[in-house]
């Protein structure tokens, strides 16, 4: 029997194959996938929390669906993301929109789905998680990251999940983000320490 393809960190190739074409299927409700293996969601929380805590530069990439206050749920997700970032600690780098920016993006303070590798390289990010990025843009960015960097990618997807992430949750809501935070706090209480290098959270408001 042919061995199952594993969605591992890259660099896979200039143009990595889509995980779906390699036989990776999306998780059902209540499940997640870890490197292509379908698992119970609870298992994935702990796995994701360990990955984030073990990273030198763990980074959360909040997208437009949580950065902009479309509704109260978006605001709740934003609050949960901030709590997760503080609990880890992790950097927060926004993907505020998807336009190709001219003349160039500033990789120190933002990420763009058209060339997310620039932000990964610049900040030496080794583990990241996408939250609140529209599916097609997340797919694009995840593939580029896996193609050209060695960053471990995760997706907290509000829809059906992402095959091209190394680890993906589905049906994300504020409660699920809180659960990930709780998993981080539990591991920390058990003595697992964050390996994150010291950093200052970017404050990019005009005053900053």
């Amino acid at each position: 029997m042919e061995e199952q393809y594993q969605v591992m960190p890259g660099p896979e190739a200039f143009l990595p194959p889509s995980a779906a074409s390699m036989g990776i299927v999306l998780p059902d409700p209540g499940q997640a996938h870890i490197e292509g293996r379908l698992v119970d969601e609870e298992e994935a929380y702990e796995y994701a929390a360990r990955k984030l805590l073990a990273a030198k530069v763990p980074t959360l990439f909040p997208g437009p669906l949580v950065l902009w206050r479309w509704n109260d749920k978006a605001a709740k997700k934003a609050a949960a993301i901030r709590k997760l970032a503080n609990a880890l600690p992790a950097r927060l780098i926004p993907m505020a929109d998807y336009r190709p920016k001219y003349p160039k993006i500033n990789p120190a303070v933002e990420i763009n789905p058209n060339h997310p590798n620039l932000t990964i390289w610049y900040n030496k990010i080794d583990v990241c998680i996408f939250i609140g990025v529209h599916c097609h843009q997340a797919n694009l960015a995840l593939k580029i990251i896996r193609g050209g960097t060695d960053c471990y990618t995760m997706a907290m997807c509000a829809q059906a999940g992402h095959e091209d992430a190394c680890l993906s949750f589905r049906d994300a809501d504020p409660a699920k983000i809180e659960k990930l935070t709780a998993a981080v706090e539990k591991l920390k209480s058990e003595g697992v320490k964050s390996e994150a290098e010291d950093f200052d959270q970017f404050v990019t408001a005009r005053e900053g």
């Binding site: 950065l67 934003a78 505020a96 408001a205």
Partner: peptide, 17 residues
């Protein structure tokens, strides 16, 4: 709808503010 979530406002680049 054109408002930034308060909890993440400080990480948004100035052009969005």
């Amino acid at each position: 709808k054109i408002a930034i979530c308060e909890d993440l406002a400080d990480i948004m680049p100035p052009e969005y503010h």
